[in-house]
């Protein structure tokens, strides 16, 4: 997507180094701390197969006798399992690393899908106007009035009832990306449409039109690059939202199965053991989820302050 500034040949890097974005980053310690935590969490999650001491999905590495051991700061813990074990004897640290990986993959995947649908619809609605605009925006309004989480739960429920539990679990990652992507595209569509409306009347668009470019080219090559900063800003918030939505769906049993848990399904499976005193099985993945979402939200706040796009309001 819009990462031309960070992944880069040297000229871009020089431009990035002198940019206001980087300047304000250097002078905002909250953004720096959040960024560092975010990078650590993402890389730890992506490197889970190499970092984790055991593979929690490989039953031969799991010892049921080691179940429900507490984390290291509580008496009765085992040095082998720094964050304790869950009810099946799986190392919490390893399951959390793997779980965070699943959550992040779904979060990013869902946001990419949202962005694809939302940006296309937003461009079409804003540039073409008229009936297309009225139809797409009415659709977005209706969907938003139901709230994205509600739509996701309903779509999830329908998918689950259609495909049956077993098939649903098998393709859960793909289905969750689809569900959350379909549920949250209106956010992108509205933001992009608002920027397109502002851009459409500018001279460069008129010039492109006079030169005889087709609508598609004008939309994607001329207008889209000028709407990137609001897209970039809401993307951060949307990733946080997608991760929360995924966790919520998994918690309701409409998400990742326990055999391939995300952070949400770890919380769900641990919740049953809360009463027996093993709080760490549910609260440790919960804490990781909160920190992950919090740093993304804080980075989003910072980006919004710096880029200050005309976000769609109301």
């Amino acid at each position: 997507m819009s990462n031309a500034t960070t992944t880069t040949p040297p000229t871009h890097w020089a431009r990035f180094r002198d940019s206001y974005l980087f300047y304000s980053f250097k002078h905002d310690w909250i953004a720096q701390v959040c960024f560092v935590i975010f990078v650590i969490m993402v890389s730890a999650a992506l490197l889970a197969p190499w970092l984790a001491s055991i593979n929690p999905y490989d039953l031969s590495q799991v010892f049921i006798l080691d179940s429900e051991l507490p984390p290291f700061w509580i008496d009765g813990s085992d040095a082998k399992y720094p964050l304790g074990t869950d009810a099946l004897g799986r190392d919490m640290l390893s399951t959390i690393l793997y779980g965070a990986r699943v959550s992040l993959i779904i979060g990013f995947g869902a946001v990419i899908l949202q962005a694809l649908i939302g940006v296309t619809f937003g461009l079409l609605a804003g540039y073409l106007g008229g009936r297309v605009d009225a139809f797409l925006m009415r659709l977005a309004d209706i969907q938003l009035s139901f709230s994205t989480l509600m739509v996701a739960i309903i779509v999830g429920a329908v998918f689950k009832a259609t495909f049956g539990g077993a098939t649903y679990s098998e393709h859960a990652v793909l289905l969750l990306v689809l569900i959350i992507g379909l549920a949250e595209w209106p956010q992108y569509a509205r933001t992009v449409r608002a920027s397109v409306l502002a851009e459409r009347s500018k001279e460069y668009v008129d010039a492109a039109r006079v030169m005889g470019f087709r609508a598609k080219r004008i939309m994607f090559r001329h207008i889209l690059p000028n709407t990137l900063s609001p897209i970039f800003v809401i993307s951060t918030v949307q990733i946080a939202n997608a991760i929360i939505s995924e966790a919520a769906l998994s918690f309701l049993g409409l998400g990742m199965p326990e055999t391939q848990p995300s952070l949400g399904s770890l919380i769900k499976s641990g919740f049953d053991y809360l009463q027996s005193g093993s709080w760490w099985i549910t609260l440790l993945p919960g804490a990781v989820l909160v920190v992950l979402v919090l740093v993304i939200n804080l980075l989003g706040d910072w980006l919004r302050d710096v880029m200050n796009p005309r976000l769609y309001k109301g």
Partner: peptide, 22 residues
């Protein structure tokens, strides 16, 4: 409130149960 927005509702619920019920 920034922190509150980042905590999913079911997690708040679980923490409240742990603190006030258990």
């Amino acid at each position: 409130s920034t922190v509150g927005i980042s905590i999913p509702v079911f997690l708040t619920a679980i923490v409240l149960i742990q603190i006030f019920a258990i």
